[in-house]
Amino acid sequence: MQKGQAESLSGHIPAYIQVASALRRRIETGEWLPGEKISTLEELEEEFQRARVTVRQAVGLLEKEGLLKRQQGRGTFVAEQVNDRRWLTLETSWSAIIRSIKRNVPRFIEVANPPSHPRLAPDEGKLAEEYGFLRSLQLRDGLPYAVVNVHIEKGIFDKYYDEFMEHTALAVFDTLRGTVVKRAHQTMTIGTADPEVANLLGVSLSAPIAECRCVVTSKDDVVIYVGEITYPSDCIRLHMDLLEDETSASSEVELSSPKPRRRSKKAA
């Protein structure tokens, strides 16, 4: 069973990942139905113009994901029950983001030489004099699903250090008394996993990843928070209601709540 014209494969992503992505898309869109026998290795090799070992790796990856089942002497079939692996919806509003991460508990990773400042684009705001830096691994059901790098303006970082050690940083920002946020925006790009991220998330080197970047600025346009969150691309989806009423992008968000705690001695 050979499909028509092969999907275009290009870029620096390993060939087997590209082939696996194309095959995964056929399953997710219903082009290959549950229980259906897929193309043979020979047919896929010819279609994608890739070596047999590359095609075999791609099929093997989808077998590990539970999307394909190999039957001895019969071929390879789409699994009867195909679970939706994209369980994590990327939120598009402040309140929804806070709601989705509020109960997360970060597992912090020690960084020998943390970057002193975040990278900023010209239109993202002004750098603060100093920042605190945190790197953590986020888990779901005991399994890692995100690597998070966070820069926080040093005054806020020191004042609420204990809160940042117990909760995700944005959830803390949502409860800070007297802090006024002028702007908060999030962008997403698609990249590939470097060796460290691949090891932390348990994915293949150069596997597709989604990189979300959240920037929060104060009233005087100083950047008080930069969060860079890396997800395996096969667990996320972006959903937007295109007819939902728009809110003013320039509106200010006033954050409120707990009193600062004294920084613990062990964290000095």
Rank of each mutant, 00 (worst) to 15 (best):
L33W: 08
G191E: 12
P144R: 12
Q138F: 12
V53H: 07
R135H: 07
Y225C: 07
V150S: 05
L134K: 06
R140W: 14
F157N: 06
T187R: 10
E196D: 13
K182F: 03
K3Y: 15
R135T: 07
K69V: 14
P208L: 04
W32A: 02
S39R: 06
V59G: 00
E65F: 05
T192K: 03
T29F: 08
L143F: 11
I27W: 04
P208E: 06
V150N: 05
A146Y: 09
R99M: 05
G66S: 02
Q2H: 07
S264H: 13
A58F: 08
S206C: 02
E65P: 00
F133S: 01
Q18M: 11
I13W: 10
G30D: 06
V59Q: 02
V180N: 09
E36W: 13
V181D: 00
A112C: 01
K3H: 14
E45H: 06
A121R: 12
P122M: 09
D194W: 03
R183I: 02
N149R: 10
Q72M: 08
S250R: 11
E166A: 12
F157D: 10
A210N: 12
I236L: 08
A207V: 02
I38Q: 00
E80T: 05
L88E: 08
G60Q: 04
N83M: 14
P232R: 06
K37I: 02
V216R: 00
L23F: 07
D158P: 00
L243F: 15
L23H: 06
L62M: 04
A112T: 14
G35K: 05
G73P: 03
K69R: 12
P208F: 05
L176Y: 14
G227T: 08
E31C: 04
L90V: 11
S206M: 10
M188E: 12
L200A: 04
N104I: 11
E46A: 11
E163F: 15
Q2F: 10
E196R: 10
L90S: 01
E130A: 12
E129G: 00
V203F: 06
E130F: 15
Q57A: 13
E47L: 13
I156V: 11
V172L: 08
D245E: 11
P122I: 09
P114V: 15
L44T: 03
I229D: 05
D162L: 10
L137C: 01
E228N: 09
A6Y: 05
L41Y: 15
L88R: 12
N113P: 00
E63L: 09
D162E: 15
I236K: 05
A15S: 13
T40E: 06
E65K: 09
R135Y: 07
N83L: 15
E47G: 04
S136V: 02
Y131P: 00
L44D: 07
G178N: 15
C212P: 00
L143W: 13
T92M: 01
G35P: 02
I97N: 02
V215F: 00
G73C: 06
A6Q: 03
K64T: 04
Q71D: 03
E47A: 09
R183K: 10
F157Q: 06
P260C: 04
P118S: 10
E166K: 13
P195G: 14
S256P: 00
K102C: 01
L9M: 11
N199E: 14
P258V: 15
D123R: 11
E254W: 09
E129Y: 10
T40N: 03
V82S: 04
V223N: 00
Y161F: 15
M188Y: 09
H239Q: 14
S206N: 10
V216K: 00
G4I: 08
I27P: 01
A22H: 02
A169C: 04
